[in-house]
Amino acid sequence: MDVFRLHFDIDGGSFASAGNASVEVKKTLRQLGVSNAVIRRCSIAMYEGEINMVIHADGGTADVEVYPDRIVMVLEDHGPGIPDVELAMKEGYSTATEQIHNMGFGAGMGLPNMKRSSDDLKIETKVGVGTKITMVVRL
């Protein structure tokens, strides 16, 4: 069974270019003939994840796998980790700076948006080591 794979190195140094990987994922899913509703959910989940990696973790990697029945997105960084995952999942909770707020993010909607847009969201995180987020969207 063929699995389509994409890998991205997310540059943490530039907020302006954040989202480039998500744009590529979206284009690829469209080329693969994935439905608009699924593309939309994957796009939102991936984009919020990518923005989070740039804001909080100085970048990281993203791996996307397209299976016949699901799309799996794995975002991994070596950032500060999330001390309290339950708190981080609450809508409105954010540790982002004022500068990030001024750029239209850091409203505490990133992780909740990722959860809402995916069928499964798994967060593996360790303070001082990094965070790995696995999201599954079923086709």
Partner: peptide, 27 residues
């Protein structure tokens, strides 16, 4: 707030905003 657009927009085809950065276009 682009996060709010991503969270709450449904099928809108027009975005009205006072925010100026490339993430507005990517959103």
């Amino acid at each position: 707030m682009m996060s709010d657009v991503l969270a709450f927009a449904t099928n809108e085809s027009l975005l009205i905003t006072g925010l100026l950065n490339p993430q507005v276009v990517r959103t």
